[in-house]
Nucleic acid binder design. Structure first.
Length: 327
DNA sequence: CATCAGGGCCCTG
DNA sequence: CAGGGCCCTGAT
């Protein structure tokens, strides 16, 4: 079973996102499955983070306004953190959370779009947000595959309980990810005993690739999208659906949209063509449509409309949608 | 009770 | 490039 750690040192720093910045729509994605490494309520997000092998408890708090945004970031740790470490961490958080993404061109270009215009208006300053390292995201992607949401939640929880570290800070108890080498030492059978099924093999092999250094997040950030895609597809258990998520969320390619899974096909068809779920528009046609209408911003545009839908759902069930998402 | 498909991917033919 | 198998779970 996992260990737990009380974090008693606290530092507070200020982050300055590029305006416009919408705190809640960035810090909470209602379509993401709940995970024991974070918690959100309006104006605050708690998030654990393993950075340079140091487990951290983060708390982001909303300050300022959409047009003059600030974030107060409190950082809990077991030991005192150096200035250099904090600077480094700040850069990483700016990168992962897309805090410096310039949305102005996107906003101007689509403010009058019949469908996207109103959504941009509602969620001005929202950006895609990823809190994970590449390795952590790969694990999440694997856990999502061929499973219902509930099952993904259970698998992730079992992994945290067995390999993660429970962090106690700010009155919260949240799990922090493990170092890859921890799972590299585990056997496939140990993983299978957590009821993750055949995914055990994928997790072992992806972890091994990371530990060996065969795939390096920081090197990959410098490469082209197609080089990144090729490297990711080379990982056992990582296919086009997972790679699509990673290229957008982890590597921030706002135009990465060239694979649509069957369940999303039905939802996109309804959203953009108002078709019935049993007669969805072909994925080829959907992809052409997105490309033509949203150009290099196509995944960002779809993200806006997708999140808008799930915020609506959070505030009251949407009947047609409930049938299409397996919980 | 049995059967089945699911927020994919690998492997085979 | 189509289709079967994979772990387990909740739905039927």
């Amino acid at each position: 079973m996992s260990k737990s750690l009380f974090l008693e040192k606290k530092r507070v720093i200020e982050l300055v996102p590029r305006a416009p910045f919408n705190f809640d729509a960035t810090m909470h994605k209602p379509d993401h499955f709940p995970s024991a490494d974070n918690e959100w309520k309006p104006g605050i997000r708690w998030q654990t983070m393993l950075w340079q092998k140091v487990p951290l408890g983060l708390k982001f708090e909303k300050r300022g306004t959409i047009d003059e945004p600030r974030i107060s970031l409190s950082i809990w740790s077991r030991d005192e953190l150096s200035r250099g470490f904090l600077d480094n961490l700040t850069d990483e958080i700016n990168y992962r959370y897309n805090l410096q993404l310039d949305l102005n061109k996107f906003n101007r270009r689509f403010k009058d779009d019949p469908q996207l215009g109103a959504v941009i208006n509602r969620w001005k300053g929202m950006r895609p947000m990823n809190y994970s390292s590449l390795y952590e995201y790969l694990i999440i992607a694997i856990v999502l595959q061929n499973a219902t949401v509930r099952r993904s939640v259970n698998m992730m929880q079992a992994l945290f309980e067995n390999y993660g570290t429970l962090l106690l800070y700010n009155g919260k108890e949240l799990y922090c990810f493990w170092e890859p080498k921890v799972i590299n030492r585990a056997t496939e059978q140990e993983l299978r005993d957590l009821k993750i099924g055949y995914r055990a093999k994928s997790i072992k092999r992806v972890t091994e690739a990371i530990v060996r250094g065969g795939i390096n997040e920081f090197e990959l950030r410098k490469k082209s999208k197609e080089e990144q895609r090729k490297a990711l597809l080379g990982l056992y258990g990582i296919g086009p659906a997972s790679v699509g998520y990673i290229l957008f969320d982890v590597f921030h390619h706002m135009d990465e949209l060239n694979y649509i899974s069957p369940w999303k096909q039905k939802i996109y068809s309804k959203l953009f063509f108002d078709t019935e779920p049993d007669e969805p528009v072909s994925t080829d046609r959907l992809l052409e449509f997105f490309k033509e209408r949203f150009g290099k911003y196509r995944m960002l545009a779809v993200h806006y409309i997708w999140e808008d839908l799930f915020w609506k759902r959070k505030n009251g069930a949407i009947e047609w949608l409930e049938k299409l998402i397996r919980l």
